[in-house]
Simulated assay, not measured.
Amino acid sequence: MSQTTAFISELIRAANEVEKLTPFEVSRLLDRSVDTIREMHEQAGVGGNRRAKDVVIDLGIASARVRDLSTEDIRDTLIDAADVIRALRIILAERE
């Protein structure tokens, strides 16, 4: 299993067990997601995409405000991060 696939699994697992996570753990996952998405955008050559920047900004804001988010919002945000990373993984795999 690749690191990217493992991280996607980790995000989905966290979303399914969000009640067990501390705000720090959620924030850390979201920060890792931002870093991963930025790196993958750069590799895929879509770094300047406005939608890509919006996702990164939204995840960064969610990370900073994690204590203010509901359990449902945290779950949705983790799943969104996993979806974006999964889509980028597919794009990168097609280009190889």
Results as ranks from 00 to 15, higher is better:
I91D: 12
G47F: 10
V18M: 03
A87T: 14
R32T: 06
V84I: 15
F7I: 02
A87Y: 14
E19K: 01
A14R: 02
T4C: 11
I57H: 08
M40C: 10
D76Y: 05
T4F: 09
E10L: 06
S63R: 13
M40T: 09
E42Y: 07
E39M: 02
D76V: 01
I8L: 06
T71Q: 13
D31P: 00
I12L: 15
D83Y: 03
S63W: 02
E94N: 12
E96K: 01
R38Y: 10
A14I: 13
I8H: 04
R65T: 10
M40Q: 15
L11Y: 06
V18T: 15
T71L: 11
Q43F: 07
D83W: 01
I90K: 11
N49S: 12
I8V: 15
P23R: 05
R32Y: 03
I57F: 08
R65E: 15
T4Y: 08
V55L: 07
R67I: 03
R50M: 09
R13P: 01
T71D: 05
D35A: 15
E10H: 08
A14M: 06
N49W: 11
E39T: 15
M1Q: 10
R65G: 03
N49L: 08
I57K: 13
A93F: 04
Q3W: 06
L29W: 03
N49R: 03
R13Q: 14
L11F: 11
S9L: 09
A93G: 05
K53I: 07
I37P: 04
T77V: 09
A44N: 09
I85Q: 03
G45R: 12
D35G: 10
L92E: 08
A87C: 06
M40P: 01
E39I: 01
T5D: 12
R86P: 01
G48H: 14
M40D: 13
A44G: 12
L92S: 07
R50C: 03
S9C: 06
I74W: 05
G48R: 12
M1K: 05
L11M: 13
I57N: 09
I91R: 01
A62L: 03
I61Q: 13
S70C: 07
L88W: 04
T71I: 13
T22W: 05
V84Y: 08
I61T: 15
